[in-house]
Design a protein around this nucleic acid. Structure first.
Lengths: 344, 344
DNA sequence: TTTGAAACCGCAATCGATTGCCTGAATTTA
DNA sequence: TAAATTCAGGCAATCGATTGCGGTTTCAAA
């Protein structure tokens, strides 16, 4: 209960009859100290169990070796994996992570970003919320000279570092797979088109249809079906059409694919024979449903590590004048499982 | 690219021809400033878009309004939910969260804790790793005057604030349920007994058997079966016994229960008719397996909020001399699903 | 008009670490 | 031997916000 007094450089200085300046230089391995004194300082620092006061250092240096992360939800598999990846890579370099969740609310996102700016984090990593249409708060980050890295859901018009998935390509491959399995009427569950990831996935869907000269049927495209419940509702609607689809690509998430599967079970529709189901994100549960769900893996932990490494690379070359807003695109992988495999 | 100069209290002071002291007092709503000047300061602060420099304030005040969280793995459903709960509750009070993962390694756990101490966090929230047997690093936290809150997996001998589940009670209810469903030979998959949570669950298992005067059969208790793979291996061993069990309580996690289910499927054993399966943690996937898995919900998000609120309560009464190491126990809830329901 | 007490506000120190500048000593070069 | 470097280390300012102490002003009571 009596907070033990922490040892400062002044304590060390006093003990060795030198000034704090020299102690500081010794601890920072400056070449303006005698090798002998340096060793002496290091030795007594260890003896006294000295720990640098990070607060003081931060204030003086103006940087905090801290990275702020803003995600819609911490407890969503994709995001917690990305965070785990970031943590893993940044930890090794002695960086800390401050985590915020925007809860898909623009207001909270703005507040989170401002908090992080106030905390003087060295870098802000963000995946924007659905509501987020205006991006002045992100521009603020850049104006403050804080490195900004967007991932997954990004504001495309902002020229920042970005780490994204090639959603369009993945989506096209997914739909191609469905077509190759002989599905003829492929429905699409789409998410809010204001988010780049969802509009890209739609593009991929359209591209695949075009490639195979298949018609785009408007009634098979359902807007805003990005939760399990919305996915289920959309499925009921689709399956009651005069000409129902024979496959549903839940491009928004595996959760909506799960909603599709539930409804199929309820209506006694055979998957994959009568209905193919394809999700997105490779949530752990997709492997263990009956039938298991074909989906797309986003390499989320790897994505986190990539983000961290991108930051460190950018730091290393900070003196270079040419600043190119680098975009790293990770190619997701189609994981074919039982819910769409009806050939062979 | 030109980091906009931030406004300080000196800028405000200069503009208003007063000293920084007064500005500071005005901003902190001290009653040692004239109401008029206070308003003037507030007004110009807003005009100049002043933001308090948190680093300076932290240094001066010696506290950071930051809570450090150490968990074995961020991307494990239970922990990410607890974190989400903590974040939710602390955010409202203007606190930040620094997150670390120990990866179940004692070394990394120690390093994480030391980092958090160095960062002068106001509170450390931790769920210890499996490897963690020696707890001097936690004692350090207390010595530094930092509030320590343990949750879920706790070092019982340390007198700290704790938020835990009543594992024994939950486990007993679970086994009671199995017995009531008519299962006669109930196996237990147990985790490392060095962790309190696992030994408590074993106690509950034993207590339930005793209550119903059922014998404890050693060969039905399998040590160290706390992953999906280990759970599967244990199940193969159990089911090849001369007298195999008719129910398996995977007390370690739903993942090991999933391993059990997989093996049952492979061996064409009917669940729940021939084998009852009971897991722990109410992972999302338990609801969607075939059959769905009976499990125990730990109210993880609520647990996170409880942790945060406990901290704030403790802060409020910090002046009081009597410091009682409070323990909050949350009663988990048995969720009965298909994998154990064979009556009615 | 004097006294006393609030009420305001400024001064200067403090929280520790860092760093530019300067001085004196040691060493090298001419 | 004198001049030019180099090297070590000290001084003091700095990063902004906070706060104890003391001084000045204001206003009311005597």
């Amino acid at each position: 209960m009596k907070p033990k007094k922490r040892i400062t450089i002044y304590d060390i200085a006093e003990k060795l009859n030198i000034t704090a300046s020299s102690v500081s230089r010794a601890l920072n391995n400056s070449n303006h100290v005698n090798e002998a004194t340096k060793n002496l300082v290091l030795k007594t620092a260890a003896e006294l169990n000295y720990k640098r006061n990070v607060l003081a250092s931060n204030l003086r240096m103006g940087k905090t070796k801290t990275i702020g992360v803003v995600v819609p939800r911490i407890n969503q598999n994709f995001f917690s994996n990305v965070i785990a990846g970031i943590e893993d890579a940044t930890y090794q370099k002695g960086y800390n992570l401050i985590i915020c969740q925007s809860n898909e609310s623009r207001d909270k996102e703005i507040k989170c970003v401002n908090t992080l700016i106030n905390q003087h984090v060295d870098c802000i990593v963000i995946s924007v919320s659905v509501e987020s249409d205006d991006h002045t708060h992100l521009k603020n980050v850049i104006e403050q000279g804080i490195q900004l890295i967007q991932f997954d859901r990004v504001a495309e018009e902002l020229e920042t570092l970005k780490v994204i998935n090639d959603n369009e390509q993945a989506s096209m491959e997914a739909v191609t797979h469905l077509i190759e399995q002989g599905y003829k009427r492929i429905a699409l569950l789409e998410g809010p088109q204001s988010l780049n990831i969802f509009s890209q996935r739609k593009k991929g869907y359209l591209a695949a249809l075009k490639k195979f000269n298949m018609p785009v049927i408007d009634e098979l495209i359902i807007e805003n079906a990005w939760t399990k419940e919305l996915g289920a509702a959309a499925t009921r609607k689709l399956l009651s059409l005069p000409e129902p689809p024979d496959a549903i690509f839940a491009s928004t998430s595996d959760f909506s694919a799960l909603g599709v599967l539930d409804v199929a079970h309820d209506m006694d529709i055979k998957v994959p024979a009568e209905l193919g189901i394809l999700g997105y994100a490779n949530e752990p549960f997709t492997e263990i449903t009956t039938p298991s769900i074909t989906t797309i893996d986003q390499f989320s932990v790897h994505m986190g590590k990539t983000i961290a490494n991108l930051y460190f690379e950018e730091m290393d070359k900070k003196e270079e004048t040419v600043v190119t807003p680098k975009v790293i695109s990770i190619k997701p992988q189609l994981i074919v499982r039982s819910s769409t495999r009806r050939l062979k």
